[in-house]
Amino acid sequence: MIEFGERRDTNATYGATLTALAKENSNIVVVEADLMKASGSAVFKVAFPERMFNVGIAEQDALSFSAGLAAMGKIPFVSGFACFMAQRACDQAMNSIAYNKYNVKVVGTYAGLTSEKNGGTHISVSDLAIYRAMPGFLVIDPGDANEFAAVLRFASEYDGPVYIRSNKGVFPTFLPEDSVFKPGKAIVLSDGADVGLITCGIATAEGVKATAMLNELGIGVRHIHMPTVKPLDTEELIRTAKQTRLLITVENHSVIGGLGGAVAEVLCAQFPAKLIRLGLQDHFGETATLGYMMHEYGIDADAIASSAEKAMNA
């Protein structure tokens, strides 16, 4: 049984972790597009003012500028709202960074529904899909702030482009503070023979709660947390598909092109299985609280448990 720890946010984790990493590695630099407030990098600016570049409200410039830093051997962490990092600066990510194979870490803040009352234009429903489609990018949606910190450390040591999601707000932690991130590896959170539950990002905590509810009903759940959306842990996915009766993916993102899409691609090619994809069903977000939207869109614990129970009884 997974136990939740302290509620932490990725915002405070970002600044503190990068500052710590930057003390060890003088090549780490930070690039912002007038959203230090969202990323949490202000403390980095205090510690290393000369290693912080803020290009203003210009996400395209921010990504290409980061590519130039990387070309000279720097390890830039560039952040901005996930919607803008993926959509507005898509071509810069694709060409300035991915095509050139530059060592840039792109951090999409206020990811998905966590942008909350900023509303539909600011809620990134497709950032995972967009970055998944870029050759060479690793795509990671960490489950909690502890894993987020581990991902930042991994990214600083990995030579190549990485897209990392960061959230707005505090969320329960369920992984240890000193966890080591293994790219492309899923984490098995519970075992069971009925439902294979595959989650990433903030949906994993909901999955943990849903698992407890389903267990109460006598439904066994093999819950795997899949923070690396690309490359997917296909081995663990197929194992889970073989061991359970149906699979459910849950993500803070559209069901098109993200975790659900990635899982469907693998299953179709390697092990056809019944799959239910929970997430935004090809629609935008709205101006509302996170809890409201997660429930309305069917990705909170109650909705996940309800979908699983219904599918099992179908």
């Binding site: 290409s64 500028f65 590519a67 830039p76 060409n95 300035s96």
Partner: peptide
């Protein structure tokens, strides 16, 4: 030094290089 083609990006990359 830099693979280009999509216009407008090279000068941003140059800014990053000069800063580094």
């Amino acid at each position: 030094e830099y693979s280009s083609g999509p216009l407008g990006q090279g000068i941003s990359v140059a800014c990053g290089m000069a800063s580094a």
